[in-house]
Design a binder for these strands. Structure first.
Ligand SMILES: [Zn+2]
Ligand SMILES: [Zn+2]
Ligand SMILES: [Zn+2]
Ligand SMILES: [Zn+2]
Lengths: 129, 129
DNA sequence: ATAAGTATCGCAACTATGTTGCAATAATAT
DNA sequence: ATATTATTGCAACATAGTTGCGATACTTAT
């Protein structure tokens, strides 16, 4: 079986995501690592972290992909909490407590969910843009 | 005011989306138009159709962007019906009747929603892959 | 501590997707 | 038929993500 290894780069990426209050894109993470490793390595690390259920992938309404640290105790069947994407500051945050309820359509087998709300976050709403 | 014009290319794209049972990506639409117009033109037409609320944009769990004809009578405040993305055949379909209910988080202003379910569609589920 | 096995990495090259500026074209109203 | 201007084509660019392969370095076992 393939065993997973801890490397400097992997640790750094995990740290960055742990400390971030918002979800980060590949390029944002790459910049934050500041030449620690190659661009491709970040892609591969993120893939592994997602597979290991340490990080989850979030897709914005426009197709932008971001990543956030999981806050659940390891293996979870489905990531169904909502995410909020601000049209103004473009930050994406996990809304861990917001979960959609819906009627599962007959004959469909659901194994994953993406539920993203878009609009104005509290910060930008107060700034009265 | 900017008035909108009906062109051959725009009509073709609208036709293609009207006839399709599943949502289509830019490149799929481009191939179906078969050299009718430039690649860039398709992007611009899709933008206009989305703005005019004739077509809506759907983002898959992996960030793939697709487009589907709207089935509502013109202006609608928010596209909140669910979409289903099949992991096997990669088709995305509108589930017009499935709408998520959720608790609107305090202090957030929601203006748009993306709710996509992923898994196996009825066809692929029966094929017992 | 050393060596073997292999997960991970760097690099280069590539594909896919989406955007922009500008001159040419064509839809629409008068 | 003419004027106005929305739309298009093209070329060039930007960003995102992938792949193959030889080199590197983490882990485990001796
Ligand atoms: Zn904001
Ligand atoms: Zn989250
Ligand atoms: Zn299917
Ligand atoms: Zn739809």
């Amino acid at each position: 079986m393939k065993t997973t290894r801890n490397t400097t780069a992997k640790t750094a990426v995990t740290e960055i995501l742990s400390k971030s209050k918002t979800a980060l894109s590949h390029s944002e993470i790459y910049k934050l690592t500041a030449d620690l490793c190659n661009r491709v390595t970040i892609y591969r690390i993120l893939d592994r972290l997602v597979n290991d259920d340490i990080v989850h992938k979030i897709v914005d309404l426009d197709g932008t992909v971001k990543y956030a640290k999981c806050h659940h105790s390891h293996p979870v069947t489905i990531h169904n909490h909502a995410h909020f994407s601000c049209e103004n500051c473009h930050e994406i945050t996990c809304l861990e407590s917001v979960k959609p309820s819906y009627i599962i359509p007959h004959n469909y087998k659901v194994t994953d969910i993406n539920f993203t709300l878009s609009g104005l976050c509290p910060n930008c709403l107060n700034s009265n843009i």
